[in-house]
């Protein structure tokens, strides 16, 4: 897999400081291969969101390098989809026009109107929310809003997909349904993805590798291979031995570093 060293998202000695000089994110180093998905697990305040903000281009001051397919991420025209924790929907636009606006901004010279609308409808039905197309976000439940946010993120067909604790505000049952739904559609459209979470189960269910950020920012993050669990059918993951072995392993890392 020598190609994976160049292809994909390379986070090289990334470090972020607050204006006070305190570390917001301790040094992180990893390469996420193209069409791969890693989860980032860490306690609150460990810099998980900071890492995503740096990759998404919302945060411009950091040390280290961000490369995509060997070239600087910022100097290329790379489309980055973001699913924030608060869903990030514009309350004054309907579900459909939230997606439409994002598509138009992402692809100014893109598809004609009709195929764009077809694309929107396809993603709405993929997320099971066709009937919500003309509703406003404030009239939707958290789970429904998150489905819209995911539909939007997939519909713009980004090169990199960043998810910042997207399911953390949802109840357990909705969360499990959305984890499965997300993974199914990610597998059908494998976008290079970083998934931030503070939930150990979620990190094991959704990542090919798990990057565990330490609470002491001077410590190095631990990168745990999760291929065995990731290769299983989603429905079987939770009851597999490999899943429990991973939980044990991560607990040990957490005891040492959190």
């Amino acid at each position: 897999m020598s190609s994976s060293r160049n292809n994909g998202l390379c986070v090289k000695e990334l470090e972020v400081e607050y204006k006070s000089g305190e570390l917001a994110l301790g040094r992180v180093d990893f390469t996420l291969p193209e069409h791969g998905i890693y989860t980032i697990l860490g306690p609150s305040g460990s810099g998980k969101s900071t890492l995503l903000r740096a990759v998404s281009g919302l945060l411009l001051e950091f040390r280290g390098e961000l490369l995509f397919n060997g070239q600087s991420l910022r100097e290329q025209d790379i489309l980055i989809g973001l699913v924030p924790q608060n869903y990030g929907l514009l309350p004054w636009k309907t579900v459909k026009s939230n997606i439409r606006v994002a598509m138009k901004i992402a692809h100014p010279k893109g598809q004609d109107r009709r195929s764009q609308e077809a694309q929107i409808d396809r993603w709405l039905s993929a997320m099971g929310i066709q009937e919500l197309a003309d509703r406003y976000p404030l009239s939707l439940s958290g789970g429904q809003q998150q489905r819209v946010a995911i539909a939007r993120a997939f519909a713009i067909m980004p090169s990199i997909l960043l998810l910042d604790e997207p399911f953390s505000a949802l109840d357990a049952i909705t969360r499990e349904a959305l984890q499965q739904l997300f993974l199914e559609h990610w597998q059908a459209n494998p976008t290079t993805a970083l998934f931030v979470t503070h939930d150990v189960d979620e990190a094991i269910l959704l990542g090919q590798k798990i990057i565990v950020l330490p609470s002491n920012k001077r410590d190095a993050p631990e990168i745990i291979d999760n291929g065995t669990v990731f290769g299983l059918e989603h429905g079987e993951k939770r009851s597999s031995d490999a899943f429990f072995a991973q939980i044990k392993r991560i607990r040990k890392v957490m005891q040492a570093k959190w």
Binding site: S56, G57, L58, D77, L79, I80, G81, L82, P84, G88, L90, V101, A102, I105, A106, R152, I156, P158, L162
Partner: peptide, 9 residues
């Protein structure tokens, strides 16, 4: 509120 739109350029 601006984040998603900013990140897609």
């Amino acid at each position: 509120t601006y984040d998603v739109l900013t990140s897609i350029g």
